[in-house]
Design a protein around this nucleic acid. Structure first.
Lengths: 213, 213
DNA sequence: TGCTGTGAAGTGCTTCACAGCG
DNA sequence: CGCTGTGAAGCACTTCACAGCA
């Protein structure tokens, strides 16, 4: 159905939006919408219709002129283009409150993002079982990463230990890191880091709040 | 110390970076760095030096030529410019796993973002005490928002109930919403919504992973 | 006819380069 | 002399407008 992907540079803003499209398309699919055109999809995502068409065009021609996009095939096309239509195995470092909350979340597994090993440097936590996984010493990280084919690392340590956690992950050959710790980490160019920080969002809300202006 | 702010349009990319600057500056301050110039600060934040200077210039002249920025005053200047140097009172809707994790997080309160009321539409949860707060029926939201001076709403419901939660918040006069539910919500122009979605970040990591390219 | 896919135009953010000041 | 603050240049993303196809 899709042609071969256009080999241009793809803006990272496009990648972010594709994730939104999948989310919204899944809701349409749940409501038994079978076909959708770019404008209503764009409106549901809070963007412009051309934007949607251009974003999709980076990966192929998924639509039917005069009709629109078939919802289910479009979901399949996007997830396949992003590489999220397969299992991804992840390790988590820092089994505190936040780490436990993420382990309990469950939605990760449902989407193919499996946390298969958890680590902490606190000797009192090592050996504890959390959500069916034994807490390991960070020293074991390297061996377990290769044994378990882990590709993504999640950091949920306090900020002062985030850099060391990142170093452990990189030493183990991990190149993709999701960082929940409220700290920037220093990494070489080739390592991908995504930051999740609630306060960034709260700061934006506070700044844009009517009273503040 | 600061001149009056320049009254230009401020890019929202700037606001996001300011949050990062605060985070990084606080780390420098913890390490007893007293003065920093734009280039090392920029490097720690992963951006360009001019960018830092231009971002700060939107709000005033905080630096000393030939010297740099005084770390503590700069933190104060930024937090004051963003309006995050005061208490913000928040309501949370959806006391499930994620909601409870956020209530337990504690870091919110430390930064002046206080969750002062929690709501759920499940009758079995109403009356339950979670982290010192009684779970209320969403019907009580309007009264409690005005009684408790709540300005920000947090949505942690399942996706299918996110829109209704947003409606409750808007009916109560809330104009700032932090949405953790994996769903887009439809709101009028004047309402500010920030989305927190872990999967958006995981999708980006998956797409940029070496094996995928 | 209606909607996609896409070059061209428009817009806004980022980087450069340097004047200006401590 | 060094670093800030800032106009101007550069670059990247977004939007427009329409050709092209079902």
């Amino acid at each position: 159905m899709a042609n071969q992907p256009k080999s241009k540079h793809i803006p990272c803003a496009t990648i972010q939006r594709l994730a939104t499209y999948v989310q919204v398309l899944e809701n349409f699919s749940r409501d038994n919408v079978e076909v959708i055109s770019s404008n209503p999809l764009a409106e549901a995502c809070g963007v412009n219709g051309s934007q949607v068409r251009k974003d999709l065009a980076y990966f192929g021609e998924f639509g039917i002129r005069g009709v629109g996009y078939h919802v289910k095939s479009l979901i399949a096309a996007i997830t396949s283009s992003l590489g999220v239509d397969r299992e991804w195995r992840m390790a988590l470092i820092g089994v505190g409150n936040l780490g436990k909350a993420i382990l309990n979340h469950g939605e990760f597994r449902a989407r193919g993002f499996n946390i298969v090993a958890i680590f902490d440097c606190d000797p009192f936590k090592i050996g504890e079982i959390v959500h069916g996984l034994e807490v390991h010493c960070t020293r074991d990280l390297k061996d377990m990463v290769s044994d378990l084919n882990i590709e993504i690392g999640i950091i949920t340590t306090p900020p002062e230990r985030a850099q060391r956690a990142a170093q452990h992950l990189m030493d183990a050959g991990i190149t993709s890191i999701l960082n929940f710790a409220p700290a920037r980490i220093k990494v070489p160019e080739r390592i991908n880091v995504e930051y999740v920080d609630f306060f960034h969002h709260l700061y934006a809300l506070a700044f844009n709040h009517p009273m503040t202006r």
